[in-house]
Amino acid sequence: MGAEVIYEVRDASKSYGSVKALSGASLKLHAGEVIGLVGDNGAGKSTLVKVLSGAHQPSEGTILLDGEERTWGSPREALEAGIETLYQDSGLAPHLTVSQNLFLGREQMMPGILGKLGFLARKRMEVQGHDDLERVGIAVPASNRPVSALSGGQRQAVAIGRAVSWARKVIILDEPTNHLGARQAGEVLNVIRAAKAKGLGVIFISHTLPHVLEVTDRIVVLRLGRIVRDAPTSQFTPDSLIAAITGSADAEPGPTSAE
């Protein structure tokens, strides 16, 4: 791709006690690029996501945003730098409404003294939340409904809508199509395309390989905490991708293949 690298991680490692969940992973993400991150259960995908999103500090390695070295003390710092993450299991606060979830952590306050006293501009956020979701291609029921009243697919749509409408640079989606029907999964893929069109860098984690092959520009394969393959999506077939994930293609976890 011609676009500049917006987000990069070099030689990142992370251990949980004696478990080395990630060893020496390096990754480059360009603006307007969708990377598919795949690997078996326990391969280290979620760990890499947590390093990229500021939820965990890597034991070793460096992170660069727009070419500048950064360290994230907390997810908040990464969020403020424009990196949005949809965690595999964090989800939403089910008792809060759609718009409360959309704006959680970034509320709009009432004008004047009431706002200073901490009062929220609820109506304004409901209207704007609805518009934000429509803009990224998601139509959900009234934004003043509690999330617990939504179907699984709708909830996921809200979670993704939240991430996409807030992201300024990078959006990381950890298994966003899990538990979704075919139609809803199709909509998630559309949202990913919309994010790409906005010029965001997207990291998409999924076990549904047809989705990965359909929507990504590049695929990164993790196995036992190492990146064993990093190549344009066009170089993979469904079979070769499975082989790369399970390791049956090359007997040993080999080095990263050159582009």
């Binding site: 997810p75 403020e80 964090s90 606060a93 008792h95 959680l104 952590g105």
Partner: peptide, 15 residues
């Protein structure tokens, strides 16, 4: 409410 509903989501939202 957010913390009581889902503390993990609240934290992830930067609270």
């Amino acid at each position: 409410y957010a913390i009581g509903s889902n503390a993990f989501a609240a934290r992830a939202a930067g609270i």
